[in-house]
């Protein structure tokens, strides 16, 4: 198997006395697409936020290519450039145009020239079909369009891994597809990704490995076909059951 990119080693995350992640360990390899699923409040979004140190952890360690991820360290901004993140609520900067949203960090953080950043931003926007929106403001775009811009914005920093935090959860069903197609095309290019989602058929299509979390622990992991077709644990079986419906038998 390829090199380990992110090593999550026995991490503990709690808010006061409320334990959210409880001794969780996970290796993410280069080029791998890991999809994290689980019931609401199981800690899957928190896990993503710990990976780029938006949340401090109270125990254990997360390393990126062997380097410790710590929100208070001097190297954190350098590490975060390598770890792109896309949020459920897009979080574009409302006061900047689409183009300026994308090139802000490449220019300010990576000190790239405006022309260079702009050229790449336009190429990426073109690839997701939004080049004509480059001078618009975020509020003029639909949810699906905003989310595609958010993905482009993350990509423009040339991250080694992308974290997707329920990126389609706030979208209308018809817009879900356009966003997921972008992620699928990234998977084809061997991008390393960690994806938290409730879209099970998408998870099955995109994942190399499924991680099922409940109550802050990994309950089950495996390939998509192992997990979806033959879940081993009762907890996973019960979880997957919630996505299938039996035909209603009307009472006589």
């Amino acid at each position: 198997m390829s090199e380990v990119l992110i090593k999550i080693d026995n991490i503990l995350k709690k808010y006061d006395d409320n334990v959210v992640l409880d001794g969780l360990s996970l290796d993410i390899h280069e080029g791998e697409v890991v999809v994290v699923v689980g019931p609401s409040g199981c800690g899957k979004s928190t896990l993503l936020r710990c990976i780029n140190a938006l949340e401090p952890i109270q125990g254990g360690m997360i390393t990126f290519r062997g380097e410790k991820i710590d929100g208070r360290s001097k190297t954190i901004t350098a590490l975060r450039q390598k770890i792109g993140m896309v949020f459920q609520s897009y979080e574009l900067f409302p006061h900047k145009t689409i183009l300026d949203n994308i090139i802000l960090a490449p220019m300010k953080v990576q000190k790239r020239s405006r022309a260079d950043a702009r050229k790449e931003a336009e190429e990426l926007l073109d690839r997701v079909g939004l080049l004509d929106k480059k001078d618009s403001f975020p509020r003029q775009l639909s949810g699906g369009q905003k989310q595609r811009v958010a993905i482009v914005r993350a990509l423009c920093m040339h991250p080694d891994v992308l974290l997707f935090d329920e990126v389609t959860a706030a979208l209308d069903p018809e817009m879900v597809r356009e966003v997921l197609d972008v992620i699928l095309s990234l998977a084809k290019q061997w991008k390393t990704m960690v994806i938290v989602t409730h879209e099970m058929s998408f998870a099955r299509a995109v994942a190399d490995r499924i991680i099922f979390i409940d109550q802050g622990k990994i309950v089950e992991e495996g390939t998509p076909s192992e997990f979806f077709d033959h879940p081993k644990t009762e907890r996973a079986q019960a979880f997957l059951q919630t996505f299938t419906f039996d035909k209603v038998e009307k009472e006589a």
């Binding site: 936020r49 780029n52 938006l54 901004t77 350098a78 975060r80 450039q81 770890i83 792109g84 993140m85 949020f87 609520s89 979080e91 574009l92 900067f93 409302p94 006061h95 802000l104 960090a105 300010k108 953080v109 990576q110 914005r153 993350a154 920093m157």
Partner: peptide, 24 residues
Amino acid sequence: IQTESALSLGMSRTQTIWHVILPQ
């Protein structure tokens, strides 16, 4: 979360405040 979004792009606290938070 606007701050987090800027931080996740590798921006420093000062850059985040200056370019993202203050203008808004």
